[in-house]
Design a binder for these strands. Sequence first.
DNA 1: TTGAAAGCGCTACCAC
DNA 2: GTGGTAGCGCTTTCAA
Lengths: 346, 346
Amino acid sequence: MSAQEPGQRPATVIDVAEAAGVSVATVSRTLRQPEKVSPKTREKVMRAVTELDYVASPAANALVSGRTHIIAVIVPLFVHWFFATIVESIERAVRAAGYHVLLFDLWEDGAPRLRITRDMLRKRVDGVVVVNLVPDDEERQVLQRLGLPVVMVGDELPGSPTVGIDDRRAMRLVMDHLVSLGHSDVGHAYWVPEQSGMSQVPAIRLEEFQTAAREHGLTTRPEWMLPRCYGRPVDAVAEATRLFSSGVPLPSAIVGASDETAYGIITAARRFGIDVPGDLSVTGIDDHAYAELFDLTTVRQDVSAQGAQAAARLLEQLTGSPANADDDLQEVRLVVRGSTATRRDA
Amino acid sequence: MSAQEPGQRPATVIDVAEAAGVSVATVSRTLRQPEKVSPKTREKVMRAVTELDYVASPAANALVSGRTHIIAVIVPLFVHWFFATIVESIERAVRAAGYHVLLFDLWEDGAPRLRITRDMLRKRVDGVVVVNLVPDDEERQVLQRLGLPVVMVGDELPGSPTVGIDDRRAMRLVMDHLVSLGHSDVGHAYWVPEQSGMSQVPAIRLEEFQTAAREHGLTTRPEWMLPRCYGRPVDAVAEATRLFSSGVPLPSAIVGASDETAYGIITAARRFGIDVPGDLSVTGIDDHAYAELFDLTTVRQDVSAQGAQAAARLLEQLTGSPANADDDLQEVRLVVRGSTATRRDA
DNA sequence: TTGAAAGCGCTACCAC
DNA sequence: GTGGTAGCGCTTTCAA
């Protein structure tokens, strides 16, 4: 039975030392390097530890060692499948190594995102993972001066490794797939944030869409580009609705920049009686949790694996492995489901 | 321009004191209670602070004050809209008060969830928010002995306030709605985790479904109960598929325990050519981000508000307000969309 | 194998 | 208005 009662002052090394009849040095040693203490002493100390419900103070520890055993995970917006998954897998991975996760969500409604500052990181964390964000010059300096190990997810930062996928290749996979089905008139549903400091990923996917379309000699009319698909399916519904009700001839396929955008296109099509994939093929990128529900042809990326990878890269640096700024690009692969089909009039 | 270079030793109070030509006491005072320092001195100190890129050490601070300015948020699983939203809103709210969020995800694949332990909280955080989890006896003791302020979200813990909604009322709202549309044969798609330590919310909703059905004199056949809708829509698709292909006469309405479950029912119905709401009415609870997409009649709960509320209740205790264990139940309201209609043969 | 003591960076009390 | 200093809880030399 423990002697610790609610609200009581937490036990310190001194309390344990007294209870065990040894010095504080011995208590500390017992907890850190048990093999350097005689079995008898060890047992006495451990008994006192249990008895007093003793837990070493992380603050005191941090003070003396200079390491907090906390890492910062900085995301633009937590409430999004991708980010939540990344954070979850990072948390799990670092916990196993005795680290904790301090979360920073930089989103601000209707305003530029919060900035990464010295004050939020300095002396508080041992390392940081930046997810889908592009630090601006000032933030770069902050990160640089902090001298902390940094791992990027999705975007690039000179000097730090990036974990992610090859977004160009992901886009290529769906484009090639559509071409192989005979499609030559394609639209694109996407969003490229105008705000600075946001991820470059959307821009890269858009660029690759255009490059691939050009190389394959596809037709892409301006009316088929739906640029305001902010991420939520409803935004894509709105964009697609405009197109479907505009009277313009429709493309035979629409490439969604993400699965969630594709869901919106499919839903809008359904409302207009446009058959998917009969009249219109739709694709996504992600293989999000609902992709199967929407029977969506997409490109699978393993988000948990990316989180685990990011954690591993950070822990590597934290435990003093030789710095290695090489990027890790995860494999992606096309997952063909029922939202794409041979072009009807092909 | 700052003198701080990458990897250099971070400045301490002493460095600042020397640079400013004052004592460390004055530096500390300038930073904490600027009004107690002469303008001239203040300026000298602030200049040195900027010059040296000084940030006070949270660890030293915590050691001397006994407060870490960190709160723990414990959830069963981040990757779920509800939890991610809660965490995000808590983070935002406490950040404004100078607190940070340490994240704990208790999920373990294919195993009982992780336990809440003394070691993960003691001397590390100033307070904790427990989301949709029921601490078992041992965990209760841990929490109790820690003497930390605890705020619960969704579930109850004696002595701690709970922030949430009235789940019975939420269920009543959909049941009454269906009855008002003439439905008398209803099914229920749900999941009650068998594992101990999990949220009681699903059980409460189920119980209220049964009570309401009884009181309204509705018919509920065992075959219409779909108990393995684990949360992901695909699980509900599987359950509904079993029902739809079983040959049993169908109910005229199925009540989903959550929106995500309802999406699965709607999707399965679509695949079987069962018209929603013509042949089958479907309801959810949540007003999840996709509810509009699925045109789902549901009960709206404001999750962000719950997170903000939880944060407020915790901060209240952290800043020494009189302890108050009263619960906060957020309003819920029925949102009628297109997934429910008058019973066809009524 | 064990203990004494210095010191991590900071705040707050007490003098001046 | 300012400075000296004890002490927060711990780890880690250095001696014994």
